[in-house]
Design a protein around this nucleic acid. Structure first.
Lengths: 98, 98
DNA sequence: AGAGCTTTTGCGCATATGCGCAAAAGCCTA
DNA sequence: TAGGCTTTTGCGCATATGCGCAAAAGCTCT
C-alpha cells in the first residue's frame, strides 16, 4: 500500500481532491462538515474519506459522535510534494493549455 | 479539458506513470520503444499514450512509420509541478508510511 | 433502555476503465 | 501495386469505481 498510483488515484476524483484541499489547512474536519461544504451525501463522503485514509493521506479520530479527519502527519516529503502540487492546479474546468 | 482530475487520472496508472517518466527525459520516444521498455503490447501502449496526450501531458509527431511522443512543451508551471512531484514518488510497491 | 445524533457498511446498479484480439489505417521500399 | 513495417481503432469482456438507499454501528444524553 501507499504506492504512487494509489496516492495519485486518491487525488484523481473531484470530491476527494476538494476534501484534500480542506484538510490541508491542517485543521480537523468532521464528515458532517465536509459533506456540507462539498455538497455530498454522508455515505458518499464517508467512503471518499476512507479512500484518502487508505492512501495514507488522511487520518481519522473518533471524537464523541463525530469522526474528525485531518491530513496525515509526517508525510514523506515526496508525498507531501504531490499533494501540494495537486492542490496548486486550477480548480474546476479551467483550461490549462499552453 | 485539462482539468486537475484529468491530469491526475492520467498519471494514476502504472504504465502511464512509467511512460511519463521516460518522456520526461525531454527526448522523443516512439510507441515501439515505449512498449518494449515497459513490457506492453502495441495497442495497450498506444491507448495509454493517447490518454497522456488527451490530458495535455504529451504531444505526438508522425515521423515516417513511427509516431514519436514527447512531453508537452510549455506546460503551465502548476502542471509541470504535478508531474515532477508524481515522478518523485518511489517506484513500485515501496512502503511510504511515516 | 430509548431517542437522537453521526458515521459506516452492505447491496445492487450504472458507468468507467483497462485489456486482448483482429482489422484497419499510415507509411516506406521494392 | 504489393509487402512489410508501425500505429490506431473497433469490438467484446472483465473488473473497478462511484453512487443511492437503507440498515447497522457507535456515541451521547436523559
Amino acid at each position: 500500500m501507499f504506492t504512487a498510483v494509489e496516492i495519485l488515484s486518491a487525488l484523481a476524483e473531484p470530491t476527494r481532491l476538494a476534501a484534500a484541499r480542506l484538510l490541508w489547512d491542517g485543521q480537523e474536519h468532521c464528515v458532517c462538515e465536509l459533506m456540507q461544504r462539498l455538497g455530498a451525501t454522508q455515505s458518499r463522503m464517508s467512503r471518499h474519506m476512507s479512500v484518502l485514509k487508505a492512501a495514507g493521506l488522511a487520518v481519522d479520530r473518533r471524537d464523541a459522535q463525530w469522526v474528525r479527519y485531518r491530513r496525515a502527519p509526517n508525510l514523506p516529503p515526496s508525498v507531501e510534494a504531490v499533494v501540494t502540487a495537486a492542490l496548486g492546479l486550477p480548480i474546476g474546468r479551467d483550461r490549462m493549455a499552453a
